[in-house]
Design a protein around this nucleic acid. Structure first.
Lengths: 138, 138
DNA sequence: TTGAACTGTAACTATACTTGTTACAGTTAT
DNA sequence: ATAACTGTAACAAGTATAGTTACAGTTCAA
């Protein structure tokens, strides 16, 4: 239970909300499908809410629904909403007196950007509607 | 110091070894450039050794050198040698009684493979020789 | 053949991140 | 008013990485 599975959970949750259409879904109900605690779901929904992907209503008979149509929700948006977005981390503080240590950071930083960008491009090919369709077909 | 920076460290270390050519480099010396402990370096070198990227010699005047030419070392090889190779993790155990929970795993698994593959493709464009050149130019 | 200089690896600590859980303040429909 | 929600703080537990010490095993050189 250490690996970051927030993106996977987010896609699951959004797919669930998409199927409910306009009807608000309770965090307890979502938690039942994901098989986790409702607070974990509410924490996740809080991030998706900040990203403008969902809208929640407090109070009795409240709950959460999508803030956009499934077609308008790209998986990149989901990824950026819940992930730090770095495939690999840069290492601490290389020795600046070493010719390699002095320059490797900049080189690795450019590489990092390029790799992260490739992930973004790959995710951008899919929307929540595509995921729904795949889930339906399975 | 929690994020996985092993790939970044590995590229740094390999670049250093590449510059030394045939001469074996001591772990203590590598640690000096990376600015970390020699044991951390030896642990990393152990993984690179298992991947056939470097060769070590024990005993006095021992050390480590590249097992291939910089041109023959692709960054994908380095990535696979030190990383688990998953951009995002799947989540635990979705509820199989839920239509979404039942099928989302397979969909996410396919997506995961595709995203991981895009990282591989992006890394495959570079060899250690390319990194060396970039470090030299900086 | 002894000793010094290395690697390889186990074991432990510190730190940090994710998840799960309880608790509770705030909000809303009936 | 009250019951039913969300939002969020606070804490515990599990796990991964990094750093450190210690030491067995290997190799060269005198």
């Amino acid at each position: 239970m250490a690996a970051n599975s927030q993106f996977a959970m987010a896609v699951h949750v959004l797919t669930l909300l998409a199927r409910s259409g306009e009807a608000a879904v309770k965090s307890e109900c979502v938690a039942g499908s994901v098989n986790t605690n409702a607070v974990v779901i509410r924490r996740l929904l809080s991030q998706l809410n900040q990203a403008g992907l969902v809208a929640s209503q407090t109070g009795a008979f409240g709950g959460t629904r999508l803030a956009k149509t499934p077609n308008a929700i790209n998986l990149v948006d989901v990824y950026k909403a819940v992930c730090c977005g770095e495939v690999f981390a840069l290492h601490g503080s290389p020795n600046q007196d070493c010719p390699v240590g002095k320059n490797i950071e900049a080189v690795l930083c450019n590489l990092q950007k390029e790799i992260d960008s490739s992930v973004t491009v790959a995710l951008a090919r899919y929307t929540l509607a595509d995921v729904m369709e795949s889930v339906e077909q399975a």
